[in-house]
């Protein structure tokens, strides 16, 4: 994380030069390009169905109409709840596991760790299609609630617990990586001082490492929150219908045959809202989290 620890927010005072007008013009042009889809989502979702007319697509709505949000919410609310139920525990658990793993790998090097670590990291790059078929069978084979006759009433498949487990497991590599890089920068002397005081593995973690881990946790939580919230393939293959997350439901809404674009755009807006809020509120950390995802930044 050497590069990422350089603060991105430093502003150095400019000296006015003629070429700067060009720079601002280019930046504003890009800005407009990036905001174009946002403009479209917002104006379309505030229109009524009658007003969603191809010829007036780019025009502002005549009046603010919240009907499409109500419609989209009606459809997506249960899935929104599912996504929250999934993302909160999955993020928390994978952050805790990542912190412990990172601590072990950064400060308790043992033989073989150099081989183990890249083998762990590989897990975050694989296409999930490559594990999907056996995963479905595996989840089905783990029974949570058996029937009296020995058959299974509730397995991990089609169940929020299965989804949480899967997201935790496939989140371990990235959370471990981020914490490991974070803890590597903690001077060994700090821990050695603690060790002299007689603290063991847990003591050092609890009294020295954990208290300075907050920034690491923020990065990991933001990263995992957005990744899990935005995930789609697992949502559509292993969640069944009762645990279906919001991305799968939005896709389904958008595939509906009589296309009500205003409702779709409102649905897209609702789906994007939580991660956008996280991003706007904690953007600085978000950037760090992103860069940590590229191993060295």
């Amino acid at each position: 994380m050497a590069a990422t620890s350089v603060p991105l927010g430093t502003t150095r005072r400019p000296a006015i030069k003629p070429g700067r007008i060009l720079i601002y013009a280019l930046l504003i042009l890009f800005l407009l390009l990036f905001l174009l889809p946002v403009y479209m989502v917002i104006i379309t979702s505030f229109k009524s169905f009658q007003e969603v007319d191809l010829s007036r697509m780019w025009q502002l709505p005549v009046s603010l109409n919240f009907e499409s949000f109500a419609r989209a919410w009606e459809v997506l609310a249960p899935n929104f709840a599912n996504s929250l139920l999934l993302v909160v525990p999955a993020t928390a658990i994978s952050a805790i596991i990542g912190s412990l793993n990172g601590y072990v790998l950064a400060k308790w090097r043992f033989p073989g760790a150099n081989i183990l670590f890249p083998l762990m990291l590989f897990g975050m790059f694989i296409p999930y299609q490559a594990i999907l078929i056996p995963l479905v069978q595996f989840l089905n084979s783990v029974c949570l609630v058996p029937n009296a006759d020995g058959t299974c009433s509730t397995s991990l498949y089609g169940n929020i617990f299965g989804l949480i487990l899967v997201h935790v497991v496939y989140g371990i590599p990235i959370t471990t990586l981020i914490f490991r890089n974070y803890y590597t920068e903690v001077p060994d002397e700090m821990l050695e001082a603690g060790a002299i005081d007689g603290s063991g593995f847990w003591g050092l973690y609890w009294y020295i490492v954990l208290p300075i881990s907050l920034p690491g946790f923020v990065v990991v939580i933001i990263w995992q929150f957005t990744q899990i919230w935005n995930e789609f393939l697992f949502g559509v293959t292993i969640a069944g219908s009762s645990a279906q997350p919001i991305t799968a439901a939005l896709q389904n809404l958008s595939g509906s045959q009589i296309v009500e674009w205003n409702v779709q755009m409102a649905g897209a807006f609702l789906t994007a809202l939580p991660t956008l809020l996280v991003y706007i509120l904690l953007g600085r950390f978000f950037i760090r989290g992103l860069l940590a995802g590229s191993i060295k930044g």
Partner: peptide, 9 residues
């Protein structure tokens, strides 16, 4: 920060 599903829609 968005899902590819949102982007796609």
């Amino acid at each position: 920060a968005l899902s590819f599903v949102v982007t796609g829609v």
